[in-house]
């Protein structure tokens, strides 16, 4: 091989960009060029065509179900839901794709999760609630769904910020005018199913709040939050949800230094 010509060197920038060997500054420079020049964009597209078939060497791997839920949440695919008939409950695939026009996102997510984690399909008119815990960076930290008739809450991590080693997130219910009641420890990595006591279920309602705090292993030693509260929000009835359902929306607060 001979030394590449000047013309080749110009063209090689796009090849190097597509291959991914440029550092951040050089990448940004090529990206500006592509945005400004259709010739540069065409050269970049041509190198993408040449090299991208290499991706076929990589084995496909199905991403976890929660990823699709997170994408739908981020894009606010939360339109209205039709009341669910009993047939629909058993149809996970339907729930999965229930964003089409009528699917209340939270309700669909809730139903899918309830279906996944509770083996017996619930009866159609079960009251349930769903919570989206959004962190300060806009990422959904957790999705919580509550099956009232079974007195259970399933808390699924979406993309929570990591918790400092030796600390654990704990979920609290705060009744209106009352003190926080521990719901249970949750995880930044795995779905957790929490049993809800009858008194706790009775306090779930439009005036109660939820909160997540960072606690020592095993949870707060005092029965009250001792660490920084990283998210909180009021329970609101979801206008788009079936009459039997309400939704929780958690509004995050700035995370304190842990």
């Amino acid at each position: 091989m001979t030394t590449p010509s000047d013309e080749d060197n110009g063209e090689l920038r796009y090849a190097e960009y597509v291959l991914g060997v440029l550092d951040a500054d050089a990448r940004a420079a090529v990206e500006r060029e592509i945005a400004a020049s259709s010739a540069a964009a065409a050269a970049e597209a041509q190198w993408s065509r040449r090299l991208s078939p290499l991706a076929e060497e990589i084995a496909a791997e199905t991403p976890p179900e929660r990823l699709w839920l997170r994408i739908r949440m981020a894009l606010q695919f939360d339109a209205r839901a039709e009341p669910a008939g009993s047939r629909l409950w058993g149809n996970l695939r339907l729930w999965h794709w229930l964003t089409l026009g009528t699917g209340a996102l939270l309700v669909a997510a809730c139903a899918a999760l309830v279906f996944i984690f509770i083996s017996r399909p619930p009866a159609p008119a079960i009251p349930y609630m769903a919570a989206t815990i959004t962190e300060t960076d806009g990422q959904v930290g957790w999705t919580a769904t509550m099956d009232i008739s079974k007195a259970r809450m399933i808390v699924v991590p979406a993309a929570p910020q990591p918790v400092r080693p030796g600390r654990t997130p704990e979920l609290w219910l705060i009744p209106h005018g009352g003190r926080p009641i521990a719901v249970g420890l949750i995880s930044t990595r795995a779905p957790i199913t929490l049993a809800l006591s009858a008194s706790l279920v009775a306090r779930l309602g439009p005036t109660a709040r939820l909160a997540v705090s960072i606690e020592p292993p095993g949870g707060s030693p005092t029965g009250q939050p001792t660490g920084p509260v990283i998210a909180a929000g009021a329970i609101g009835a979801a206008s788009a949800a079936p009459a039997s359902a309400a939704a929780l929306r958690l509004v995050s607060r700035p995370r304190q230094a842990a």
Partner: peptide
């Protein structure tokens, strides 16, 4: 949205493998 969901269903396994 239906097309987007189907696009995700068809392509996410390969693209996720690539990301991993």
């Amino acid at each position: 949205r239906a097309a987007f969901a189907e696009l995700y269903r068809q392509t996410s396994p390969r693209l996720f493998g690539l990301c991993v």
